[in-house]
Design a protein around this nucleic acid. Structure first.
Length: 635
RNA sequence: GCUCACGUAGCUCAGGAGGUUAGAGCGUAUCCUUGGUAAGGAUAAGGUCACCGGUUCGAAUCCGGUCGUGAGCUCCA
């Protein structure tokens, strides 16, 4: 007999060799049902693990990431098995992990797979679930593993095995006639997977490498309860309602056209929001010690050769010819900023020199990557270049981090941070890169910010810290970034006069806070679901007279609000109040001011707030004071 | 750029397995209505069915190509 101790459930003695699953069943039926796996000594293992000695364990349910992973990973194996059954001869397996809210599996198909096939696959999956095949964990030697997959013609799996660490123990999972290379853990049998749905079909390069074959990926998700799936689908649906491309059209903020793919058009209402964001940005930057400049859109080829863009960034640039000379449309603002810096002598006393530029840049992004305002071919970067002494780098990086944090918290964004290191295609010496990367790391560590490291993802001129925000579907987008650059100052032979009266090389950082106005606006639209806070709302108050008897009063009111800088509109159409209110609600206007005879009489407005509803009559003066205060507070 | 899918009125979508004048709702215009907190009524305008080519007596419908869009991959703010 061995003793098991289940955290929160007590102990029990069971015969040695009993599986965890059987032991849990003894303890509680509920426990047995809800367990996806168990954690022993911090490691998550299968429920089918036999108990050989006294064991303390913890049940892992679907609520935990590891539990959901085991569940969905099993679902992905079921899908792969179904696909093999249906299309056997034509299919080779790629990989099939669980992901955030579901799972996928990549297949190399002889014929192409179409959406109609998904239904067939689902049907076959239901059969496999019904068969309740046990999942068996196998530990085999490298040779055995290779033999298994060679026999099955699974070339991709063999490549994976060859890429594994020098361990002789390779684990596979078998369910019926299906076998897959996998470390697990998995559910004990296919019958445990209750609810699943195949969601979409997409291409995906083998091992994420563009030069390797493109496999076909099927995405799906799985849950223990039907209701959970329904809730998930509903969440997706709601998220789609917040999509900035949809809201951008409905709220008349911007548009995109076939005539200019990837080049956004701002409409008057979108323009208002952008200008407010810019105004806020300028105020904050002035306060943070920045000066502002503007550099041209088109600059001579020679400049781009000097900056390294011609060599490292050419495929993303647009070109033109002027008087028989090559020019490029700027994809970045830095070379222009370099020229301004070089216009005069700089003393170490002037440092740090923080030079900001709201610069419109154009980049030839590949057609498949375009995504509304999130990923466009022209966008405005809220750029700045900071020139400084090498020993000022850490303080300046810290200052920018604080600035980014202040901005994002105004909008209520939560963000995560990434650090990107030297890419293959890059300029400069190893020491420079090492020094720059260490400096960035030091600041992040000092500020106790947790970050993810992206090896090889830096810019060609230096490493960077990135700030990422999430869109309505949880996809993350890089917004703020701080890029350390010891290259440009070198290339452009920048210098400053030090205390010793000699010329020295300044250090430089490129940084953006919003990132790109387009992307940030898109994220704001999705974040607020189109209901912008008062200070950003394109229309802050709409005046709704009940009959045309109140029109002159309404007009007077509109003028008063406009004269105080409140963005007011008068809805003087001959529609009923309900209709006008509905329209204002749909347009997410923060305040609706209903005026009828009573309000004219008492010189008040009946205030209706888009969320709080009817707030009753308020004097004109009081409303004006309140709304001005609220705008001021950016709440 | 790659894989799969999609492209019908300003918007959301019907329809179309080849056959006279292509439909609805919302929106727009005009008129009626002057109505107190999420859609009052009537009439009208609006489409070379993305574009180019092919098959056919005949194409919005079938085929091919181009462009654009969506999801994903790759790449990136």
């Amino acid at each position: 007999m061995v003793k098991i101790a289940v955290k929160g459930w007590g102990e029990r003695e069971v015969p040695a060799g009993t599986t965890v699953m059987e032991a849990l069943k003894e303890l509680s039926g509920k426990l047995y049902k809800e367990a996806m796996a168990v954690r022993i000594d911090g490691t998550v293992v299968d429920l089918s693990t036999p108990l050989r000695e006294d064991t303390a364990l913890e049940v892992v349910t679907f609520d935990e990431p590891e539990g959901a992973e085991a569940y969905r990973h099993t679902a992905s194996h079921i899908m792969a098995q179904a696909v093999k059954r249906l299309y056997d001869k034509n299919v080779q397996l790629g990989i099939g992990p669980s992901i955030n809210e579901g799972f996928y599996y990549d297949f190399d198909f002889g014929d192409t797979l179409t959406v109609e096939d998904l239904e067939k696959v689902e049907k076959e999956m239901h059969k496999i679930v019904k068969e309740d095949l046990p999942l068996e964990r196998l530990e085999v030697s490298r040779e055995e593993a290779i033999n298994i997959f060679r026999e099955r013609g699974e070339d991709y799996k063999i490549e994976l095995i060859n890429g594994l660490e020098d361990s002789d123990r390779i684990t596979c999972y078998r369910q019926g006639d299906f076998i897959d290379l996998c470390t697990g853990p998995h559910l004990p049998s296919t019958g445990r997977v209750k609810v699943f749905k195949l969601l979409s079909l997409a291409g995906a390069y083998w091992r994420g490498d563009e030069s390797r074959p493109m496999l076909q990926r099927i995405y799906g998700t799985a849950f223990p309860k039907q209701k959970m799936l329904e809730e998930y689908m509903q969440r997706l649906e709601e998220a789609r309602r917040r999509d900035h491309r949809k809201l951008g059209r409905e709220l008349d903020l911007f548009s995109l056209h076939e005539e200019a793919p990837g080049f956004p058009f701002y409409h008057p209402r979108g323009m208002i929001i952008r200008r407010e964001l810019e105004r806020f940005w300028q105020d904050e930057h002035r306060r943070a010690g920045y000066v502002e400049v503007e550099t041209p859109l088109i600059l001579n080829r020679e400049l781009w050769e000097r900056s390294g863009h011609w060599e490292h960034y050419k495929e993303n640039m647009y070109f033109t010819r002027i008087d028989d000379e090559d020019y490029a449309v700027k994809p970045m603002n830095c070379p222009g900023a370099m020229l301004i810096y070089k216009m005069g002598m700089h003393s170490y006393r002037d440092f740090p020199l923080r030079v900001a530029e709201m610069g419109l840049v154009h980049r030839h992004e590949r057609s498949g990557t375009l995504h509304g305002l999130m990923r466009a071919r022209s966008f405005i970067q809220d750029d700045a270049h900071i020139f400084m002494l090498p020993e000022q780098v850490e303080d300046e990086v810290e200052g920018v981090i604080d600035l980014v944090d202040r901005f994002y918290s105004v909008f209520g964004f939560t963000y995560h941070v990434e650090l990107s290191t030297r890419p293959e295609k890059s300029m400069g010496s190893d020491e420079m890169w090492e020094r720059a990367t260490t400096a960035l790391r030091a600041v992040l560590d000092k500020k106790d910010i947790s970050y993810k490291v992206n090896e090889g993802d830096g810019a060609f001129y230096g490493p960077k810290i990135d700030f990422h925000l999430q869109d309505c579907l949880g996809r993350t987008w890089q917004c703020g970034t701080i890029q350390l650059d010891f290259q440009m100052p070198e290339k452009f032979d920048l210098h400053y006069i030090g205390p010793d009266g000699q010329k020295h090389r300044p250090a430089m950082i490129h940084r953006v806070v919003y990132g790109a106005m387009e992307r940030f606006l898109a994220l704001l639209i999705e974040h607020y679901g189109g209901a912008f806070p008062l200070w950003l709302a394109p229309v802050q108050a709409v005046i709704i007279p009940i009959t045309d008897r109140q029109h002159s009063y309404a007009l007077e009111l509109e003028q008063l609000l406009l004269s105080h800088g409140v963005r007011a509109e008068l809805d003087d159409r001959s529609e009923k109040v309900g209709y006008k209110i509905r329209e204002a609600q749909v347009q997410k206007v923060p305040y609706m001011l209903v005026v009828g005879d009573r309000e004219v009489q008492s010189r008040t407005v009946a205030v209706r707030h888009r969320e709080k509803g009817d707030l009753g009559p308020v004097s004109i003066e009081a409303f004006l004071a309140d709304i001005k205060k609220e705008i001021e507070h950016k709440s």
